[in-house]
């Protein structure tokens, strides 16, 4: 097989995969600005048909979505800040040679990768700390993982020169001061990587909200989305089993749901998709630093 034929076949193979990955995304965008009846009959299959922004209007009028949005932004910012505050000093300390007993502490942290108590014991801890139905139930239980500590630690080991720290110590700087004035400014790449990974995780998570929160005013966006995209839909497809709804309002609700569905996907995913192309290299870097040190 000549190189040219190989290249052609290889490019078509990759092209097909890219199209398969891309199609659902394009479809969602098109469907969000198309007439819902054109979408449901299959008339709209790639490009928008009868462009309308009604879906978005409904989304922006929906208080629950706004509230969820606000909550998610709050959880993401607070959670990410706390994550960095706990993660960075710990990873830095573990990267220092002069820290004795490092092995034991590393094992203490690494062991949690191998074994964990499981859903129920974790739930009981959160419950007994009185965190149910508070913002803390969302940001604290997943505050920091062994994996991120390992990644940040190997970054510090590789990119903070020992001489630099020692020279600062000679000048009489304390560890606190060195960490904040010398180490952190040199560590912006790893801070970005860790913050991004954690923020995306917080933005996208629904399960801890599902089990720890019952107060609707605290629901994050993903839980509201679940309601709109999945729970309502299941009720509809199970044969009009929408409980406690009068027939008329039920039909309306189904119609509203189908209009809102695609728009709400766009609205909720937009922040990530807009930022993503610019920060892609950070994410890739994060995966790679993580894979160097198993």
């Amino acid at each position: 097989m000549s190189d040219k034929v190989f290249d052609l076949l290889n490019k078509s193979f990759i092209g097909i995969i890219v199209l398969i990955v891309l199609y659902p995304l394009v479809f969602v965008i098109s469907a969000s600005i198309s007439d819902p009846s054109a979408v449901s009959t299959g008339e709209m299959w790639l490009w928008p048909v009868d462009i309308t922004l009604d879906g978005f209007k409904l989304v922006f009028q929906n208080d629950a979505i706004w509230l969820g949005y606000r909550n998610t932004v709050m959880y993401t910012i607070l959670g990410t800040l706390l994550h960095l505050i706990v993660l960075l000093p710990c990873a830095y300390a573990l990267s220092r040679k002069e820290l004795k007993g490092k092995k034991i502490m590393l094992w203490f942290i690494l062991f949690t990768m191998l074994f964990n108590g499981g859903l129920i014991p974790n739930y009981l801890v959160v419950k007994s700390l009185g965190m149910l139905d508070t913002i803390w139930a969302i940001v604290i239980p997943g505050l920091v993982g062994a994996w991120s500590i390992l990644v940040a630690r190997s970054f510090f080991q590789q990119s903070i020169p020992d001489q630099l720290v020692e020279a600062s110590k000679m000048d009489g700087a304390s560890d606190f001061k060195i960490f904040i004035k010398v180490v952190l400014p040199l560590s912006m790449p790893i801070i970005a990587v860790m913050a991004l990974f954690h923020a995306v995780g917080l933005w996208n998570q629904y399960f801890s909200a599902l089990i720890y929160l019952s107060d609707e005013n605290l629901f994050p966006l993903q839980l509201i989305l679940r309601e709109i995209l999945i729970v309502n839909e299941a009720a509809a497809s199970a044969g009009g089993g929408g409980p406690a709804h009068a027939a008329g309002s039920f039909v309306e609700q189904v119609k509203l749901a189908s209009q809102v569905k695609y728009a709400v996907i766009i609205v909720s995913t937009l922040p990530l998709l807009v930022v993503y192309p610019f920060v892609q290299k950070f994410f890739v870097k994060g995966v790679l630093i993580g894979s160097v040190k198993e």
């Binding site: 890219v18 996208n204 629904y206 989305l225 999945i230």
Partner: peptide, 15 residues
């Protein structure tokens, strides 16, 4: 393009 779906939340994916 093929990395992008990784960032879609599981709720949106199932939706």
């Amino acid at each position: 393009l093929t990395y992008a779906p990784h960032f879609i939340s599981v709720v949106v994916l199932v939706g």
